[in-house]
Amino acid sequence: MTSCHIAEEHIQKVAIFGGTHGNELTGVFLVKHWLENGAEIQRTGLEVKPFITNPRAVKKCTRYIDCDLNRIFDLENLGKKMSEDLPYEVRRAQEINHLFGPKDSEDSYDIIFDLHNTTSNMGCTLILEDSRNNFLIQMFHYIKTSLAPLPCYVYLIEHPSLKYATTRSIAKYPVGIEVGPQPQGVLRADILDQMRKMIKHALDFIHHFNEGKEFPPCAIEVYKIIEKVDYPRDENGEIAAIIHPNLQDQDWKPLHPGDPMFLTLDGKTIPLGGDCTVYPVFVNEAAYYEKKEAFAKTTKLTLNAKSIRCCLH
């Protein structure tokens, strides 16, 4: 018999989150649709729960009410004593943790798909938090293969000092899905179709896995975050240069030392320094102006996964 890495157990509980950011409308629209008619997301033997994560922000069509829901799922915020004085999103995070967690427990949901849009030209993107997770690498390989020839990129946010504390991190297997470009507060049919297909293929993978299909060893190309880059700023902290036209919409493309990065209003080009080629992502993302992030630098690498098969009882 072929030796293989056996994944822990079959997958039982899956959640699909929309509206973690209330103005990213593809996930909101799909989740609302699936709450009314969820036939397309159901798979035999699998509990799939669509869920609106930040209903107040969705109602106002804004990213958040008090603070970013997708950055506060750490033990400090989840452990705060519940009171009306807490920011709305912290209270909501505790409610979500109660419903789908608790985080880092045996009772937490197996998989959470968190649906997002970006204003950046990132196409279909899967966000991975753990480079050693054979199950998710296999799932992402399946999704990428199923979507081809449509490109699907994998963004690895594993980093020693950049801690995200994402909404989906309460699950055993957290999956971020990011599709763009799409303006905030807008629905685009092409973007919706791409996100819908990503979810379909992900659920198909889980179904095949649960039925005992063995997935042979595989490898995927990923883009691992190195650092986030702020806009150049003046002495008052105001933005002093904008994304250069040569960099705009060039997510995932190589940016070499000396290539144009920013452009000042008086026409001066600010190039990339250093001696390493990087791959920019979230270029000129609207939501990241407040976070002082013009783009993120990534490096390209390959992740390998062992063969996996479900432990059938």
Rank of each mutant, 00 (worst) to 15 (best):
T2M: 10
C4I: 11
C4D: 15
C4S: 15
H5G: 14
A7I: 12
E8D: 12
E8K: 14
E9S: 13
E9I: 02
H10S: 13
H10E: 15
H10Y: 10
I11L: 08
I11G: 02
I11M: 09
I11K: 13
Q12H: 07
Q12W: 01
K13C: 01
K13R: 12
V14H: 05
A15K: 06
A15H: 00
I16A: 04
I16E: 01
G19S: 00
G19C: 02
H21F: 07
H21R: 09
N23E: 04
E24D: 15
T26V: 02
G27M: 04
V28D: 03
F29V: 12
L30E: 02
V31Q: 04
H33Q: 15
L35T: 09
E36P: 00
N37Y: 07
N37R: 07
G38A: 14
E40Y: 02
I41N: 00
Q42V: 08
R43I: 00
T44M: 09
G45F: 01
L46C: 09
L46Y: 08
L46V: 12
V48I: 11
P50F: 01
R56V: 12
A57M: 07
A57W: 04
K59R: 13
T62V: 14
R63F: 02
Y64T: 07
I65Y: 07
C67D: 10
D68A: 01
D68L: 00
L69E: 06
R71W: 09
I72R: 10
F73S: 11
F73K: 10
N77S: 13
L78P: 10
L78N: 10
L78D: 11
G79W: 13
K80F: 13
K81V: 14
D85L: 13
L86C: 12
P87M: 11
P87D: 11
Y88H: 10
Y88T: 07
R91H: 12
R91N: 12
A93S: 11
A93E: 06
A93I: 10
Q94N: 10
E95T: 12
E95Q: 12
F100P: 05
F100D: 05
G101R: 07
G101P: 07
G101V: 04
P102Q: 10
D104C: 12
D104I: 09
S105Y: 10
E106P: 14
S108Y: 10
S108N: 14
Y109V: 08
Y109H: 06
D110I: 05
F113A: 05
L115P: 00
L115R: 02
T118L: 07
T119N: 10
T119L: 03
M122K: 04
M122L: 11
C124S: 07
C124M: 13
L126W: 04
L128F: 06
E129M: 06
D130G: 02
N133M: 01
N133P: 03
N134C: 09
N134K: 02
F135E: 03
I137R: 06
Q138C: 04
Q138I: 02
F140N: 06
H141P: 05
H141S: 08
I143E: 01
K144V: 14
S146W: 08
L147P: 00
L147I: 15
L147Y: 02
L147M: 15
P149T: 01
L150Q: 14
L150M: 13
C152T: 08
C152A: 07
L156E: 01
E158G: 07
E158I: 03
H159I: 07
S161Q: 13
Y164D: 15
T167V: 11
T167I: 09
S169K: 10
S169W: 06
I170H: 06
K172F: 02
Y173R: 08
V175I: 13
I177A: 04
G180V: 06
P181G: 02
P181I: 00
P183A: 12
Q184M: 12
V186E: 05
L187K: 03
D190R: 04
I191L: 12
I191S: 01
M195A: 11
K197Y: 07
M198S: 08
M198W: 05
M198Q: 03
I199E: 03
K200F: 09
H201N: 07
H201A: 12
H201R: 00
H201C: 10
A202K: 02
A202P: 05
L203G: 06
D204C: 02
D204T: 00
H207L: 11
H207S: 12
F209A: 02
E211G: 12
K213Y: 13
E214A: 09
E214V: 13
E214W: 09
F215S: 03
P216T: 05
A219I: 07
I220P: 04
I220M: 11
E221L: 05
Y223M: 01
Y223Q: 04
K224W: 03
I226A: 08
E227C: 05
K228N: 10
K228R: 13
V229F: 01
V229K: 03
Y231A: 02
P232N: 03
E235T: 10
E238R: 10
E238V: 07
I239G: 06
I239H: 00
A240E: 08
H244G: 05
P245S: 00
P245N: 01
Q248L: 13
D251M: 05
L255W: 01
H256D: 09
G258I: 05
G258L: 06
F262H: 02
L263H: 03
L265V: 10
G267H: 07
K268P: 00
K268Y: 07
T269F: 03
T269S: 10
I270K: 00
P271T: 14
L272S: 09
G274M: 02
D275Y: 07
D275Q: 09
C276R: 14
C276W: 07
V278Y: 09
V278C: 09
V278R: 02
Y279H: 08
Y279S: 01
P280G: 01
V281A: 14
V281P: 05
F282W: 11
F282H: 15
V283G: 03
V283E: 04
V283I: 15
N284E: 00
E285T: 10
E290S: 11
K292R: 12
K292P: 07
K292Q: 11
A294Q: 05
F295R: 02
K297R: 05
T298E: 00
T299D: 07
K300N: 01
K300M: 08
K300Y: 00
L301F: 10
L301N: 02
N304M: 12
A305I: 01
A305M: 05
K306T: 13
S307A: 15
S307W: 02
C310I: 09
L312G: 15
